[in-house]
Design a protein around this nucleic acid. Structure first.
Lengths: 138, 138
DNA sequence: ATGCTCCCTGTAGCAACTACAGGGTCAAGG
DNA sequence: CCTTGACCCTGTAGTTGCTACAGGGAGCAT
């Protein structure tokens, strides 16, 4: 392969992505199809590398593929106001906040449960008890 | 239907579950197949109600279906030590802890990104910049 | 007899990958 | 020149935990 292009494995390595995932992104139209070599290998340019890096970084920050798609589109419209970008980021942050709160509530419940475990038999296990319904009558 | 048995809709309502989900739990062997009426309707007993309640409560606490399956098995072995139960609960709590930490780190990054937004054009948007790779050269 | 609500099975869809199977390509070593 | 091994190709199916139909039957009230 000519040195200006990357094979899929090299691209994957540089972006910490699985090869299959790169192909998946192409299939769903997130990463444009690259040129092909004579042997039908994908030949990626530096633009692809940049774009995939952007995608991965966004994914690492928890943006959904749909959000990433929008962010990519927006990043291509350099003259536009970045209001929409800000909105997506804020929305995502709010959701992360909600998730954190949910998990913290969960954690407290789990903690209570675990604290009550007397390490006896299952028959009087407080954890099982906590999971069991109060009434089982129809 | 005889009053001692519950139709699937009633069971679903009492456990805050979708009817399809109840059938799904049966399909994957989490909830045992109930008796059937003459008209081939599922007829659930109070044992089913208790078991499904247990499942839902566990799911609400974030246990995976696999963990729920194990917890159900354990809860049936009343004489056993509840060590294994405790282990599952602790493992899950640790995972919740990790998730919270991950999300908090994420949140800080998002916050930094958002704070730097100067509300100009996309061309000099700090959010886009933060998502973009430092180098794009092959 | 009609309408309505409930129930039945079976299949397909969601997110975001991941994991093959069964083959082709390419460069290096013997 | 041939083989070996690492890489690449396509296509399909699996993962988790449901959810949403489509197309039909059951049961009860009017």
């Amino acid at each position: 392969m000519a040195q200006r292009f990357l094979a899929i494995g090299e691209l994957a390595r540089r972006t910490n992505t699985k090869v299959e995932t790169v192909r998946y992104y192409e299939r769903i139209g997130l990463l444009s199809a690259p040129a092909r070599t004579g042997g039908n290998y994908r030949a990626y340019s530096s633009q692809h590398l940049a774009r995939l890096s952007f995608i991965r970084r966004s994914r690492d920050l928890g943006f959904s593929l749909d959000q990433v798609r929008t962010l990519l589109d927006l990043s291509d419209q350099q003259a536009r106001s970045c209001e929409a970008v800000d909105a997506i980021a804020r929305e995502h942050r709010d959701e992360v906040d909600r998730k954190i709160a949910d998990l913290q509530a969960l954690r407290r419940e789990l903690d209570n449960m675990i604290d009550q475990c007397r390490h006896g038999t299952v028959a009087d296990c407080r954890i099982i008890e906590a999971l069991s319904p109060a009434t089982t009558r129809v």
